[in-house]
């Protein structure tokens, strides 16, 4: 599926982090060589992109890096790989975080809000892919939850205990990369009914 941010940057990369996860891989248009160098040297520990993410743990946010922030050894090396990101975005969804860095030296600061919107859409698209991993039983549980069944009703239908339902919900969240079942259900509904439901009065 195409990323909504694709055409806005010369090159970009992002890391999707499930709750408690540390950066170890990225989805990126930067070269494989840069990706390998970046994670081998744990550059995320000194990268202003991740420093911004650490400061934005509660809210989704974005910024353009200043020239001062981009003058250090990391950026000198990054420039050789055309990976000197000047735009940073952090997106949060249901406990999952996406940290994004993109290269576009011509970027108009007034456009950052719309690009942040595209980053958040990209984040959701990546999480939606994880829904394809759900088993038939997990889909049945999502279906009952979507129809508004209470946990005790779902438990009765499945013939299992309430705590087993809680465990199954947790397993679904883990598969999708979130820690909030309601958020996961919203994603599921978005994917399932996308293309079938429209605003109409």
């Amino acid at each position: 599926m195409k990323h909504p941010i694709q055409e806005k940057f010369n090159k970009y990369g992002f890391v999707i982090l499930a709750p408690g996860q540390v950066p170890s891989d990225a989805i990126t248009t930067f070269s494989d060589e840069w990706k390998e160098v970046y994670f081998r040297n744990e550059f995320h520990k000194i990268d202003p992109v991740f420093e911004f993410a650490v400061r934005s743990t509660r809210n989704s946010n974005c910024t353009l890096l200043s020239e001062a922030q981009m003058t250090n050894e990391l950026f000198e090396e990054a420039r050789m790989f055309e990976a000197d990101s000047n735009f940073v975005s952090v997106s949060h969804y249901g406990g999952n975080t996406m940290v994004f860095g993109g290269v576009n030296p011509e970027l108009d600061p007034r456009a950052t809000a719309s690009i942040q919107h595209a980053c958040q859409a990209t984040h959701r698209i990546e999480l939606l892919k994880n829904l394809d991993l759900l088993t038939d039983t997990q889909i049945d549980l999502m279906e009952m939850a979507e129809e508004g069944f209470l946990d005790k009703e779902i438990a009765s239908e499945f013939g299992i205990s309430l705590s087993a339902i809680a465990q199954r919900k947790q397993a679904i969240c883990k598969a999708v990369g979130t820690d909030c079942f309601k958020s996961t259900l919203r994603l599921y509904t978005l994917q399932k009914w996308g293309g079938l439901v429209g605003e109409y009065t």
């Binding site: 009914w193 079938l196 439901v197 429209g198 109409y200 009065t201």
Partner: peptide, 8 residues
């Protein structure tokens, strides 16, 4: 096609 007036 389903109208958004139908609750999820």
């Amino acid at each position: 096609a389903i109208s958004s007036r139908v609750p999820t």
